[in-house]
């Protein structure tokens, strides 16, 4: 799968990406030269033990951070050359985020939470249409005006997925999206990912501990100690 993915013009690709940061006076090399490429409609699972650099990788893909060395290119543009403001705007247009603990705004209703990324755009009508449409597609058409504390965990995560898609992103980054959900609810989330990949051509990159999420992915990237381990990748594919 991996070679195929990089054949299509990738949305985002990284070459020999190194990320170091300092913590408590110690230099930590979170990523030690990683290559990656994400093509449209890809479903990539990043697996690995905690501290392996998964979150760091996700932050780089999400333009929340820039690499120390090597380059990350989004449609050919080196993200390190973008200003903070430009990166924020690019992130808004390109990337959707789904978090393990949902991070819905408790004072906003379901539909307002979905609208939230576009609230400052001054296109309230179009935003409302898009948000309503997305909530209907995740099966929450009857919960538009419910507040997060009136929703179950699975429903919250579906609202969060709708929110991540409101700006028509190219990539959806999901950090342990099923981590707080039971198996059946988790299945529904994975189904939703498949639906949106098919309908919106959005690539999904998920960081997970969960082998069964990894099984659902097209491609698994095994990160250990800040490096991609092909052997483990083979093993992961073998178990499919």
């Amino acid at each position: 799968m991996a070679p195929n993915a990089s054949d299509d013009a990738p949305i985002i690709r990284g070459d020999d990406v190194v990320k170091e940061y300092e913590t408590g006076g110690q230099l930590v090399r979170a990523l030690k030269g990683v290559d990656f490429g994400i093509a449209p409609a890809d479903f990539v699972a990043v697996v690995g033990p905690s501290g392996s650099g998964k979150s760091t990788l996700l932050n780089l893909l999400g333009l929340l951070d820039v690499p120390t060395r090597g380059d990350v290119r989004l449609r050919g543009t080196d993200v390190a050359t973008l200003s903070d403001r430009e990166r924020t705007n690019t992130r808004k247009d390109t990337i959707g985020f789904v978090f393990q603990s949902f991070y819905l705004i408790p004072t906003l209703t379901a539909v307002e939470n979905v609208e939230m990324p576009r609230m400052l755009d001054r296109t309230p009508k179009r935003t409302r249409e898009r948000a309503t449409d997305l909530l209907e597609r995740v099966g929450l058409g009857d919960r538009l005006d419910h507040y997060p504390d009136e929703l179950s965990g699975g429903q919250k995560q579906r609202v969060a997925i709708a929110r991540s898609l409101v700006n028509d992103p190219d990539i959806l980054l999901a950090d342990e999206p099923t981590g707080n959900l039971d198996r059946d609810t988790g299945d529904r989330i994975l189904d939703l990912f498949d639906e949106f990949r098919a309908e919106e051509d959005v690539a999904v990159v998920t960081v997970t501990h969960d082998a069964y999420v990894a099984d659902a992915a097209d491609r698994v990237v095994n990160l250990i100690d800040g490096e991609v381990r092909p052997a483990d990748e083979a093993a992961a594919e073998g178990s499919t």
Partner: peptide
């Protein structure tokens, strides 16, 4: 903090 992080992540600039 987390919520504000989400605002930043979904594309709200610092000024917002």
């Amino acid at each position: 903090e987390g919520e504000i992080g989400v605002f930043r992540a979904v594309g709200y600039p610092k000024t917002a």
